[in-house]
């Protein structure tokens, strides 16, 4: 019964979004001004609920969905998307650091590269015509869906020996497996390749205002060999630094509109709290499939919007 209720919540969450999308209309829409932030809050609340069991960051859901179905210019949607991802990462950071599921020493070298490139990405995003950004966003989202659908994860990757850079920086640690209480020592390798990948991740994060957990996680886990739980925690923590840099560019460019950004942040954070509580009862694989389908639809919408096929 609990599972059925939880599934109903998840389905309602996804069903709510199209209702708000139907309301999305040109600026001359009859909806009063306050209807938009209210709709945004409701949609983000439900996105926050499903994001947690789906294992997807709120930012990656926010930008294509709100960009595709709300009347706001993409500049403001990307700015708000960055803040959604930033606020979520900042809030999660202290607990992740205290528990050892995020590693400061693993995060810092990668974050510094991605932070710098996120500034570059943000500048590219503002320099390109909006349609070009829409098309690139749609293509990126569809690629993310494929990546998330097919990529494997490794609970405890085997790392025979650390590379010289990770050894010099002390990019290793011990974490406690929550279910068993077992202490798991870990280390990483292929740090130069990881730094190169994080350079490109930063560009995408800054350009589209997406949280980049979808890319951080496989880079840390599959490429560098960090345990899955440490990868997930550190990925979130890295976002807190990367998105800080990009957020300043958006702030300076005037692309952060409080009426759009604040209801989104609050809605997503409240929804994520509910989602975390429902984690035990929600059928995570089913929710993940629903969310990926929703993401694919939103990516296609962004692509077609950019190509002026579905304006």
């Amino acid at each position: 019964m609990k599972r059925l209720l939880a599934l109903a919540v998840a389905a309602a969450a996804l069903a709510m979004a199209p209702e708000a999308w139907a309301a999305a209309a040109p600026p001359e829409s009859a909806m009063p001004w306050w209807g938009w932030p209210l709709s945004l809050f409701v949609v983000c609340f439900f996105l926050g609920i499903v994001a947690v069991p789906a294992g997807v960051g709120g930012g990656v859901l926010f930008v294509p969905i709100v960009g595709g179905f709300f009347p706001f210019h993409l500049d403001f949607v990307r700015g708000a998307g960055l803040l959604v991802a930033l606020a979520s990462a900042l809030s999660a950071g202290p607990a992740l650091l205290h528990s050892g599921l995020a590693s400061l020493r693993l995060a810092l070298p990668l974050a510094v590269v991605a932070s710098a490139s996120s500034i570059l990405g943000a500048m590219i995003g503002f320099a390109l015509p909006t349609n070009a950004v829409q098309v690139a966003l749609g293509g990126t989202i569809l690629a993310i869906v494929v990546l998330m659908a097919v990529s494997k994860r490794s609970e405890l990757p085997e790392v025979a020996a650390p590379d010289p850079i990770s050894a010099a920086l002390g990019m290793n640690g011990v974490f406690v497996e929550p279910n068993t209480g077992r202490e798991v020592p870990w280390q990483v390798h292929r740090t130069p390749a990881g730094l190169a990948v994080f350079f490109f991740i930063g560009i995408l994060a800054g350009m589209f205002g997406l949280g980049a957990g979808w890319a951080n996680l496989p880079a840390l886990n599959l490429l560098m060999g960090a345990p899955l739980k440490v990868s997930a925690g550190t990925s979130s923590f890295i976002l807190s630094l990367v998105d800080s840099s990009a957020a300043w560019v958006y702030l300076n460019k005037g692309a952060v509109l409080p009426m759009i950004a604040v209801p989104s942040v609050i809605g997503m954070m409240l929804g994520a709290k509910i989602g975390a509580r429902l984690l035990a009862v929600l059928p995570a694989p089913a929710v993940r499939k629903l969310v990926l389908a929703l993401l694919a639809f939103a990516g296609l919408r962004a692509l077609l919007k950019g190509l002026a096929i579905w304006p």
Binding site: P27, S29, M31, W33, W36, P71, F72, H73, D75, F76, G79, F126, T130, K253, G254, A255, L257, M259, I260
Partner: peptide, 8 residues
């Protein structure tokens, strides 16, 4: 509503 459709 008339302004948030414009670029930043």
């Amino acid at each position: 509503p008339a302004l948030w459709t414009l670029p930043a």
